[in-house]
Simulated assay, not measured.
Amino acid sequence: MRKQIINGLMFLAILIFTSCKGGEDINPEPSIDGVKPPVGVSISPFKTINYLNEISGNKTVAGMHNREPNSDPTRWTEEVKTVTDKYPALWSGDFLFQADNINNRQIMIDQAVNQWKKGAIINIMWHACNPANSQPCGWDDGKGVMSSLSDEQFTQLITDGTAINTKWKQMMDEVCIYLQQLEDKGVEVLWRPLHEMNQGKFWWGGRPGANGTRKLYQLTHDYMTKTKGLSNLIWVWNIQDFGSLSSDVNTYNPGDNYFDVVSMDMYFSDGSGYTAAKYKTILDIAKGKPIAIGECEKYPTPQQLLEQPKWTFFMGWSELVFKEQSNTQAQIKALHNAVNVVTLDEMPGWNR
Rank of each mutant, 00 (worst) to 15 (best):
D260K: 01
K280L: 13
W237V: 03
A292V: 05
M264I: 15
E307N: 13
S247I: 14
K280I: 12
A292H: 04
I291E: 06
T251F: 15
K289V: 08
D248N: 13
S272E: 13
Y267N: 10
G273L: 12
Q308C: 10
S247Q: 14
Y258G: 01
I285Y: 10
G255S: 00
D284C: 12
G273H: 09
K287C: 12
M264S: 14
A292D: 05
L306Y: 13
Y258F: 06
K278F: 04
A277M: 11
D270M: 03
I239K: 06
A277G: 05
D265E: 04
D265T: 01
V236E: 12
Q240H: 13
P290Y: 06
E307S: 12
Y258K: 00
T281N: 12
D256W: 07
V261P: 05
Y252D: 05
A277L: 12
K278P: 00
D260M: 02
N257M: 07
A292W: 07
E297N: 15
D241R: 02
V236R: 06
G243N: 10
I234T: 00
D256M: 09
M264E: 07
F242R: 13
L306Q: 15
P309A: 02
A277W: 06
E297P: 11
E307I: 08
N238F: 10
T275H: 01
Y252T: 03
D265P: 00
Y279W: 11
K298A: 11
A276G: 10
I293M: 04
G294S: 08
T275G: 00
D248T: 12
V262N: 11
D265L: 04
W235L: 07
L305C: 01
F268E: 13
Q304R: 10
G255R: 06
D248R: 02
Y258D: 02
N253I: 00
G273M: 11
W237H: 07
I282S: 01
D241S: 07
L283F: 12
Q308P: 05
A277S: 14
N253L: 08
P300N: 09
E307M: 10
Y274A: 06
L305A: 02
S244Q: 07
Y279K: 06
I239A: 09
E297G: 15
N253V: 05
V261N: 02
G294F: 02
V261H: 09
F268T: 03
T275V: 02
I285A: 14
Q308N: 09
V261L: 03
E307H: 04
T275L: 04
S269C: 11
P254V: 00
G271P: 00
K289F: 08
D260I: 01
P309G: 03
T251V: 14
Y299C: 11
K289G: 10
V236G: 01
L283R: 14
F259D: 05
K278W: 09
F259W: 10
I282E: 09
W237G: 01
P302A: 15
S246P: 11
N257D: 15
K298V: 14
C296L: 14
V249C: 09
F268Q: 12
D284W: 13
G273N: 14
N232W: 08
C296I: 12
P290A: 07
P300I: 04
V262A: 13
V261C: 06
I285Q: 12
Q304P: 05
D265Y: 03
I293Q: 02
